[in-house]
Design a protein around this nucleic acid. Sequence first.
DNA 1: GTGGCTGTGTGCACCCGTTCACAAAGTCAC
DNA 2: GTGACTTTGTGAACGGGTGCACACAGCCAC
Lengths: 223, 223
Amino acid sequence: MSEQERRIPEATVARLPVYLRCLVELADERTPTISSERLADMAGVNAAKVRKDLSYLGSYGTRGVGYDVEFLLYQMSRELGLTQDWPVVVAGVGNLGQALANYGGFTDRGFPVGALVDVDPDKVGTSIAGVIVRHLDELPELVASKGIAIGIIATPPTAAQSVAEKMVEAGIGSILNFSPSVLGLDPEVSVRKVDLAVELQILSFYRRRADGPASLGPDGPQR
Amino acid sequence: MSEQERRIPEATVARLPVYLRCLVELADERTPTISSERLADMAGVNAAKVRKDLSYLGSYGTRGVGYDVEFLLYQMSRELGLTQDWPVVVAGVGNLGQALANYGGFTDRGFPVGALVDVDPDKVGTSIAGVIVRHLDELPELVASKGIAIGIIATPPTAAQSVAEKMVEAGIGSILNFSPSVLGLDPEVSVRKVDLAVELQILSFYRRRADGPASLGPDGPQR
DNA sequence: GTGGCTGTGTGCACCCGTTCACAAAGTCAC
DNA sequence: GTGACTTTGTGAACGGGTGCACACAGCCAC
């Protein structure tokens, strides 16, 4: 793989975090090297795909041996931009928002909850997981002072669009949308959507169809 | 589209729930018909894709007019298997599990929480959102008595695999996995995975890359 | 009933991603 | 150093999905 111009396909990008998690696990148990085949097993994909995916990062493997776990871990973290923390703001402190704020998994992986915002006066001022809930209107100052890069939308669907716009105005360029609504934003803003009901409906479809082919969804590695 | 043999591509299946939500919205505001173009706008995709997707369900449109909202809504619900409720069991009553149990969005869309299970004696016996938490060992009876079809895994990653296996043994054929772990199960079982940290890491990647092309993830419609 | 208009359904070409298969590169034993 | 063996990196074939472009069907006005 040439050093210049190595655009990484979207499908590969979506798998890198999965490999990353496997590598962390391997590093924890002090495994020094890993072959594409074993990594593929762990990640639930096939070996050729692993090799091609990793080759986009560079030729970091050793033929006849495999990949150095620590080294690959470092390179992949760097590529994913995980050598630094990315504070997030969660908008909407309902059931889901509170759960996300309390969910330690984000902070562990470099995405500390830097701020919580809502519009409900009863919620503003309360403290969740050590973070005080602020009013949505304070978003610009919060983003600036806490260096927030990512916005998480956990509001009701009706509020999602306007909250998203306020996030973008405040300088946020990446949004994770948990609300069941389609956002219309400047294409420059990165948006990803997680819709819990949609996932269940997809399962429902395959179940109806005499348990047809399911498992592998269109979105990266499953199982 | 011929009446026989109309296998629906996975990519289309993943979009149907999005169209469905748009149609529900349209029906609520008493819109009688909708064109592929307007539906495409609402769903955040292009019109040709909408028409091709809908054509897999049958020729339900009227040329020069569009699609009858109510009729299409019915057909799509039927195709997705949403004319009946699918009770779910949530395994793991931590932050996420509790939030899911309290989250009304599931019940509204035909996926009532039929049971909650955990292994922590402190949690078993408590009541969340009107459902009593039972021990994981009771899963087979719960599945049978409540007619549970779908299992939701909200346990720590270390427990996910064994919980998933117990679900399958208990007769569950569809699993939604929120834990950050790769499940290895009989391929006949439908599995979908939602990993919150992975989504953030993908956003992190695109942010690092000088705000390159993001937005459209590999998994169906975003924004 | 005729003509014009609107919007569906689909054939086709293209593109992205997956998988196969194999040459090249490196290790290890002796 | 040589040979056998392992595993990477990648060219090439394949397949699914997307989007264009257009023929055709149905509606409306007169």
